[in-house]
Structure formats: C-alpha cells, structure tokens
C-alpha cells in the first residue's frame, strides 16, 4: 500500500463551549491531518458484464493512530472507518464490533466546531443502508453520468463516531489518484484506473468530547 500520510499544520481552535460570560473559555487543540491517495479497492478488472471490479475488500483505517489497519483485523475495534469504492463503513452496526456510527454534516470543515447535541448518528446496516449514505448526491459525492466522474461534494463533512466512541470529522476532498479529478475529456481507461484513491483531511478529538 503506497499510502502517504502527511500531518498538516496543527490547527488551533478556541471554542466557547458556553454562552455564559463568566465562564473561562477552554482552549481545545485538535490536529488536522491529511491523508493522500488512500487506495479504496482500486479496479483490477472488468467483468464479462462490463462492470469494473476490485478485490472487494475494504481498506480499513484508524483515525486514532492515523494508519491503515490490516483486513485480518476487520473483526476488531482497531479500525474506525473503511473505504471500498464510493462506499464508506464505520466500525459499528453490522459492519464491525465497535460503537461506530456517522452522519453527514452540511457546512465547512471549520464551521463544525461542536457536534450538535441533538445529532443522530446512523449505523451501518449493510448492504442496504450505511451510516454514510451511498448514491450520488445522497452522501459525500456526486456522480456525473455525462462525464462518468465522481466528485466529492464540497461542504459535506462526515461526522464519525469511532470504534471506541470518540469523535472525528472528515472532509473528503478527492477520489482520484494524486488528488486531481481527470478532465471530462480524459480516456475511459484513465477515469477507471485513477479512481478509488481518497484524499481527505480529518480532525480526531482524543479527549472524547464533541468539540473540535
């Protein structure tokens, strides 16, 4: 796996957790990390029906340790999220033994400073429904039938509850190798072989609070 992990500049956010004037604001420091070219079941062939396929396995990832977790550990709580094509699973529901869940927040990465108290975390119920909704326009991406390109929808933040019940926010930025979506005029082959490479940034709150 050629995944490259880069820790970006540490993002320091000062959050007012309460409107009470007298309360001393608690400074919270959450690192924003970037992950580039995370392969997510890249295409290895085309079926006789003309459908592209990969090995069918999820790429499991630990947000806590910022590392790829082996598939042999799929039944453990070592991983928090998994990627296979455009489908994203969380370590919870019927996908894993953890307490994971997720929902999609509309807004910018920096807008989301606190997970609202009334938020509902969805659970995986594969294969019919996932915590992060599948399908074009439903969750994190758009599929353009004319260009046959997948684009991460800007302003969609995945709010993740990890396997151990902590919280993270993820902004998926690109689905293609090198973080660059091919041109609409690129060859079908380019569009197929360069897809399923995730570029995203995330912030993981290790203290268990819902603040970022």
């Amino acid at each position: 796996m050629k995944t490259k992990l880069i820790a970006l500049t540490a993002l320091t956010g000062i959050i007012f957790t309460s409107c009470d004037k007298d309360e001393v604001p608690a400074p919270i420091t959450v690192q924003t990390k970037s992950v580039n070219d995370l392969q997510a079941d890249t295409i290895i062939g085309i079926s006789s029906m003309g459908q592209p396929y990969g090995s069918g396995k999820y790429t499991l990832y630990s947000l806590e340790t910022n590392a790829v977790i082996a598939n042999t550990d799929s039944a453990t709580t070592k991983w928090d999220i998994g990627f296979r094509g455009t489908t994203i699973i969380t370590n919870g529901g019927n996908s894993g033994p953890g307490t994971g869940g997720a929902f999609v927040y509309t807004g910018t990465f920096s807008d989301l400073t606190i997970i609202p108290a009334d938020s509902t975390f969805r659970l995986d119920s594969a294969p019919t429904s996932y915590a992060v909704k599948t399908g074009s326009g439903n969750g994190w991406y758009n599929y353009n039938g004319a260009t046959q390109l997948i684009t991460a929808i800007p302003g969609r933040i995945l709010v993740i509850r990890t396997a151990s019940g902590k919280y993270a926010k993820i902004e998926i930025q690109n689905y293609y190798k090198g973080g660059v979506t091919p041109d609409a005029t690129a060859s079908d082959n380019d569009k197929l072989t360069k897809q399923r490479y995730y570029t995203f940034r995330y912030a993981f709150q290790s203290n268990g609070s819902k603040n970022f």
Binding site: F109, Q173, R201
Partner: peptide, 12 residues
C-alpha cells in the same frame, strides 16, 4: 459550497 482549487478546502 465550492472547493478551492489550490487548497482543496470548501467554502460557502
């Protein structure tokens, strides 16, 4: 939202 071409970050 839109995505900044350089930074890859989203803005309103």
């Amino acid at each position: 939202f839109a995505r900044d071409l350089q930074t890859g970050e989203a803005y309103r």
